[in-house]
Amino acid sequence: MTSGTIIESVKDAIAVASTIIESTEKEVSWLVPAPLLVFAARFSLLEKSRVLIQKGGHARGITEISPPYVEVVRELIDIGTGVRHVEQYTGAFMVVGDSRQSISTIGVNVADHSLDGKIIAFWSADPDYAAYLLSSFDRTWAEATDAQERIQELGESGPSHL
């Protein structure tokens, strides 16, 4: 296993995720808390995903979709990202590009969702480590709900949500 780098702030984690998406050619997979998706949108990560998809790449992501984040999820769906919803996820959060580059963090770490928040994450370019993360991602993906279905559920629970 080759060495990696420890990332200690949400800002650096977003910058790393941006680098990963930018350098991805085939597929990016992410599993992140919904508040971080808003930062991703603000820092053009969605635009980078759109470029990847336009070039023939794939993007898929898992998050916990609640009313304040429906819009950003819709944006992701609109650009062609496959999105699924997971309820009360407790495992590792991650962004993995081309089954090689990854940034991941242990779930309990991400209590502070502010941009200035502290985080302890691991940035690696090891394909074996990426494969390990992806095996967990795929398990969660298989159990997750389609985002459209979830958004519909939220809509049914009250129009004010949308």
């Binding site: 080759t2 060495s3 990696g4 780098t5 800002k11 650096d12 910058a15 790393v16 680098t19």
Partner: peptide, 22 residues
């Protein structure tokens, strides 16, 4: 923040070239 993020990204990319992934 955008400017700061771009600067961080450049720093991290430098770090990747110099230190990481060896």
């Amino acid at each position: 923040e955008l400017l700061e993020m771009e600067a961080r990204k450049r720093e991290l990319q430098e770090l990747a070239i110099q230190e990481r992934f060896r």
